[in-house]
Simulated scan of single mutants.
Amino acid sequence: MNINFWLNGVNRHAEISPDTLLIDFLRKQGCFSVKRGCETANCGLCTVLMDGRPVLSCSTLAARIEGKKIVTLEGMQREAQEFGSFLANEGAEQCGFCNPGFIMNVFAMLNEIKDPTEEQIKEYLAGNLCRCSGFVSQTRSILKFLKYKKAQEEA
C-alpha cells in the first residue's frame, strides 16, 4: 500500500504493509527519538504529533498517516533544545529515556492550552511514564518554561 504524508515538514511517499505500526515505520525513516517502552499504549515513550495532536505510535497503524503531518522530536530540535535546558536545570532528565515522548506531549499541550495550570499540566501528562522521578521536577520545569516564554512575549 502506498502512503503520502509529511514527516517533519518534508512531503514523503512510501510503500508499506497494511499491518505496519507507525513506530516501526518512523524508526525506519530515521526517527530514532520514537522509542519502544511498554508496547501497550501506557507509557507515552512513542508519542509523536499527527496534525498537531499527540498519538501513540506503538498502537497506530502507519496507514493512518495518509495525508497527515507527522512531527517527531527530530522535526523540532530547536524547541526541544530550548525546553530541554529547563528539564536539565530542574534535574528532570535523570536517564533521559522518557524525554522525547514527554517533550512531544508538552508541546502538544502548549498548542492546545496556552496558559495551563499546574493541575492541567499533571492531567495532560498523566499518560507519560518516568521510572526515575515522580514528575515533580518535570512539572517545575514546565512551569518555569511557561514563565520564561510569557516574559519573552511581553518583551
Rank of each mutant, 00 (worst) to 15 (best):
E118C: 07
G37T: 00
F25S: 04
L110D: 00
E93S: 11
T40W: 02
C130P: 10
F102D: 00
V71D: 11
P100K: 08
R53G: 13
L26F: 06
E112W: 01
N128G: 06
G67N: 09
C46I: 10
S137N: 14
I70G: 02
K122T: 04
L129I: 07
E79M: 02
G52V: 01
F135W: 06
K28C: 09
I121R: 00
K35I: 05
S133W: 05
P116R: 01
K122Q: 07
A14K: 02
V55L: 10
P54N: 04
T47R: 08
G30N: 11
K28N: 09
G37H: 03
S141N: 15
C46L: 15
F86Q: 01
T40S: 07
T40V: 10
G84P: 02
C130W: 13
Q152W: 04
C132Y: 07
L56K: 14
F5C: 04
M109L: 13
Y148W: 11
P116G: 05
E74V: 14
K149W: 11
E79W: 10
C95Q: 08
G44N: 00
Q77W: 04
K149Q: 14
G127C: 11
N11W: 05
K28P: 08
L7Q: 15
L7G: 08
V106I: 10
I121F: 03
E154H: 07
A151I: 09
V10S: 03
K35S: 10
G67I: 11
A126S: 14
I65Y: 12
V10Q: 08
R27C: 06
E82K: 04
L125H: 08
N4Q: 14
A108H: 01
G127T: 03
Q152M: 06
Y124G: 02
A62L: 14
P100S: 04
T20W: 11
G91F: 02
N2D: 08
T139N: 10
A88D: 05
E79V: 05
L146S: 14
M50N: 14
F5T: 12
E93Y: 04
G37P: 05
E90S: 08
L7S: 13
D115E: 13
S57H: 09
L45P: 06
S57F: 10
L125Q: 02
Q77C: 06
E154T: 12
L22H: 09
T139E: 05
M50T: 15
M109F: 06
C58H: 09
E15T: 12
C132M: 13
K144M: 14
E123M: 12
Y124Q: 04
L61E: 13
R53H: 15
Q120A: 15
N11E: 13
E119C: 03
Y148K: 03
N8L: 02
K144L: 14
R64I: 11
E74D: 15
R140P: 02
A80E: 03
K144I: 06
C38E: 07
C95L: 03
N99I: 13
P54T: 07
F135L: 05
E123G: 05
T117G: 10
D24W: 03
E15F: 05
E66K: 04
Y148V: 03
S59F: 13
N4V: 03
F5L: 05
A14P: 00
R36D: 15
E153H: 12
A80M: 06
Q138T: 12
L129M: 15
E82A: 08
A14N: 01
N105G: 11
G134S: 15
S133C: 11
C132P: 06
L143A: 08
C130T: 12
A88I: 07
